[in-house]
Design a protein around this nucleic acid. Structure first.
Lengths: 300, 300
DNA sequence: CTGCATGGATCAAGAGGACTTATCCATGAA
DNA sequence: TTCATGGATAAGTCCTCTTGATCCATGCAG
């Protein structure tokens, strides 16, 4: 059976307005309905309650005792509902949940999010990190930042943020200790941090160095988590293959050194995504504009 | 625009159940809907709020932060509404508003209503008196007792209660003071209380007395309000034309005397009426059964 | 008193929204 | 693996609800 039959909520909504305004016509105006509709709904409600709620006097309606008793409680209930929805909406509007990779979070977001918060003091940011790409219907998140080749996901709108290119980086002291890194082959003088990282092969390929057996080399394995590899490189344990955009600070502080301008790419890029249906949500819109401003390579 | 669009109350109702049971299927069962309908309504609500309320995990749904915040308030609001309706219904069920004539109220109801209240202790009785026939849509009333010729009113169900016949009555001492009232013509020895009352003409007609010019006689006028005429008769001011059923007490107490068995009628009868649509209302049903029992001439 | 404005009731017709049925999919359990 | 569970999706149906027209009663102004 139809729910509205068992529990005529819309009729109650109409009743509330009519009882407050003591006029079917005015109630209709307030609710965007015709007077006819109001009359119909009130009668419906009276039928289900089994009591008349209004006395129909010419040119005015007045509440019966039953109506008089019912009205204030109904008003209050709808006020509760209205408040609840409004506060849910505003509180949710007030919290932006960002899902991103650990590296992007620590290397880019952590440095820039302060600006976003200064510009949007009413939006709290909650950051979640995960390696896997998330499903917005299964995970509580407003936006996600992921590395991917295409940036096309069904139901999601996505924006290109930056190319995911990489280059070897190491502690400058380590470079000096082996007499400097002037040619790609010089890299082999130091330990390769996680030589199993597929990026290495791609970079050496781009550099024209093909005859290296990376698999044979001593290596430290970090499961491809860039942040760990970077930490090892900073500590002088070897040379890591990193995204230089993420380590400009470390370069400036002399903790890392990028020996070559050459950048290689595995074809993946960084994308920013959110559900298509929520593209106009204020907080998502605000974050999108922030990203557009802060990231020169951002594209619609 | 449709009200349910602006304010998806039914969707909220569904959400409330789903949030409480943490299952769309169970919510559907509770509300008498299919799981599909629940899914549809929840999505509708999420669209209007602009926030996901549930995370769809395989074989279970869980509330998002937003849903978690919304649910308790909505539950409470619906509880308020449910209580309000229930209490309106029960309180209204608990008060029976009877509209009747002053005479019937004072002469019959007042004597018998105690029995009704003993039998129905949870029903409070409110009595309103009025001369005019009332309009249930304009006057707050559950049942009405009226004198009328046909007992047929559109939209009302009515029951015949008693014939509205009448006969002269006077204080026995007054009767003695004129040597007794043995023939209709003897009535002319005493003052006729409200000779302008049309009942007198009808009664004399029934008694075969035609050659009386009532208009010419000294009279007291009470506007046809029987209770006033009766009071005057009891006080010994003259003879009144009354419904004997209403004055059995006064006859028993020796305050009134009915000299003739002859009863005349103007064709009106006493009817008991209420809106057809409310015939099954418990309080109306209770009162109808009471009337049926107390009034031998009651007819369906 | 007459005519107008106001506010509600009633009616028929039609739109569109709320459901249903059928089907599919993913997962956890046996 | 197969089955059971719980939800999503698509398409179609039914009927609630809205609309617009019309009518009625009353209060008010002239």
């Amino acid at each position: 059976m139809k729910l509205s039959r068992q529990f005529p909520l819309n009729a109650l909504r109409v009743f509330e307005a009519a009882a407050r305004l003591l006029s079917f016509t005015k109630a209709g105006e307030e609710l965007g309905l015709t007077q006819t509709a109001v009359s119909y709904q009130i009668k419906l409600l009276e039928d289900t309650i089994g009591e008349p709620l209004f006395l129909r006097r010419p040119r005015q309606v007045i509440l019966t005792d039953a109506g008089e008793r019912l009205a204030p409680k109904i008003s209050q209930a709808f006020e509760t509902i209205g408040d609840a929805i409004a506060s849910t909406r505003s509180q949710s509007d007030g919290t932006l949940i960002i899902h991103t990779t650990a590296t992007f979070a620590s290397r880019w977001l952590a440095h820039h999010i302060g600006t976003f918060q200064l510009e949007n003091p009413h939006i709290a940011v909650r950051m979640e990190t995960s390696q896997e790409t998330i499903d917005f219907s299964k995970t509580e998140a407003d936006v996600a930042i992921r590395s991917s080749k295409s940036g096309i996901w069904p139901g999601l709108r996505s924006h290109f943020m930056m190319k995911s290119h990489f280059t070897p980086m190491l502690n400058p002291k380590l470079a000096e200790s082996v007499g400097g890194i002037n040619h790609p082959a010089d890299l082999l003088k130091v330990r390769i941090i996680d030589a199993s990282d597929p990026w290495w092969r791609l970079w050496f390929l781009a550099a024209g160095v093909t005859e290296i057996d990376l698999a044979a080399r001593p290596t430290s394995r970090f499961g491809g988590i860039q942040a760990f590899e970077a930490a090892a490189a900073i500590a002088g344990h070897g040379v890591a293959i990193l995204k230089p955009e993420f380590y400009t600070d470390d370069v400036a502080l002399g903790r890392l050194y990028q020996p070559f301008d050459l950048l290689a790419s595995d074809g993946s890029d960084y994308w920013f995504a959110y559900p298509e249906t929520r593209r106009n949500s204020p907080k998502i819109r605000a974050f999108r504009e922030f990203m557009r401003k802060m990231m020169p390579t951002f594209r619609d």
